[in-house]
Nucleic acid binder design. Structure first.
Lengths: 250, 250
DNA sequence: AAGTTCGGTTGACCTGAATCAATGCGATTT
DNA sequence: AAATCGCATTGATTCAGGTCAACCGAACTT
């Protein structure tokens, strides 16, 4: 479907959202990590707007002018890049507490698409204001740099995955990564719903959807996981970890 | 071989290197892009130390404590990540004017290895000072953020390459990328020496060294390039570009 | 100058994932 | 309840790239 009109929460800000940052359950993972109350207040003042997205809606599109980065308050996103000739590739899945949009800084325009894979809400962080504020709050500056750097390190990990792992190993790495991120958010590390389709997961992992499906079935046959459509239950976290540990170790 | 003692140029700084930044031929591509003379002077004062590396030496290793990023003044580097189980993957090749070390910001320790592929020289940029200075020079702050963002966007491009291109296309993308970067530095876009071995290129592109060799030979047979060991001459830039443009376009 | 080493090329063969195709399942629509 | 649609599963076959192996050539070593 076409993108639906943005659902923005505008001017109520003054009281009800004033300390939204302070209350947000994504806080510990998000930008404001480590800020003092006063600094948090400044940041909260800056984050003027929340934006809600329905499943399937774009947060931004490749080429959109860049003006803000986004902290995911609730929900789940994918980012993908598309070339002129129609090649398309999922570059990441993002969950709450994570930051979207840093691709746009370098060229003043977004360099990928960000799509909500479930109904979601983000905090809009005007980038000019973030830069301005971070010049006066060293902790914020530091933390923002860490967030960008973490993205770089994460991408290197994916490059390694794409360059060196076999299909089943890629799936295992993917599942373990999700598991660990859910755990960090207080959810079950062994039981969750995939928000992405097999096709999207395949694109992310450099595999075809059939291969993703087969690999999941194999893992189920090995009694390491249980799969039912998008529902995943990891029955042996250790078993999965071992699969990644030894390729030639025997 | 083991890492050799670092060859650091220390205190001569005061006069001979005082305006090294201002004179550096990498300036236009490097961090100081767009700074005023006065700001450049501040930056130059901060960049206290140059460091020379011989071919094969490590600039930093995975796990090394992070304290600085590095601007390549001359030379050529690779970065690679290694997992516990010995998997190793080249994440990038860097040439002069480019910045190394941003992987280290997030964890206060470097997350990859950086190795000189030829005798090289880098400017050491103490990160704490960079953050401090960039808080007072908005242009510098902005530019640093752009550099980090560009790295993220670049990595997404590589992920796309690894996820969607076939062997020969990956080689083409690699050669075109080198060509374009050499062109941006005033070198010939059609004639250059590869600094990396087939094995390193293969690791970077997610291919085995034999496949790299074969793909280069095929491109030569198609009369798009001439190869002689590490020497590359592109005889049809357009031909190469067309190879990337249409996969299914016919 | 002969020998060694390292990197590159090329060939023959094998295999893991892609492709093609059929079927199944759940959710939504009518 | 039947029909439709999107997604997932599974099987059969193909093929690109990996693997194994032999050989070559350039650059150092002694």
């Amino acid at each position: 479907m076409k993108a639906v009109a943005l659902q923005v929460i505008p001017a109520i800000k003054l009281h009800s959202l004033k300390d939204a940052c302070a209350q947000c359950n994504a806080r510990e993972l998000c930008l404001p990590q480590g800020l003092s109350d006063a600094e948090l207040q400044q940041l909260d003042d800056m984050v003027g707007v929340r934006q809600k997205l329905k499943r399937g809606e774009h947060l931004y599109r490749n080429g959109d002018p860049f003006s803000a980065i986004y902290a995911i308050k609730t929900g789940f996103f994918k980012t993908d890049v598309v070339t002129e000739d129609g090649r398309d590739h999922v570059t990441g899945f993002q969950m709450h507490g994570e930051i979207l949009g840093m691709d746009g800084i370098s060229g003043d325009a977004h360099a990928c698409n960000a799509v909500a894979l479930e109904d979601s809400e983000v905090c809009v962080i005007p980038f000019a204001e973030l830069e301005h504020l971070s010049a006066t709050i060293p902790t914020l500056q530091r933390h923002f740099h860490r967030v960008m750097s973490r993205e770089i390190v994460r991408d290197h990990g994916i490059m390694m995955l794409l360059g060196t792992l076999r299909a089943e190993e890629r799936l295992v790495a993917f599942l373990l990564n999700l598991s660990q991120r859910y755990a960090a958010r207080g959810y079950s590390p062994t039981e969750f719903h995939l928000r992405a389709t097999r096709d999207e997961i395949g694109s992310y992992l450099g595999l075809k959807l059939e291969t993703v499906s087969r690999a999941l079935s194999q893992l189920q046959d090995s009694e390491l996981i249980q799969v039912q459509q998008k529902y995943i239950r990891i029955t042996s976290l250790d078993g999965l970890k071992k699969m990644l540990a030894h390729t030639q170790t025997c």
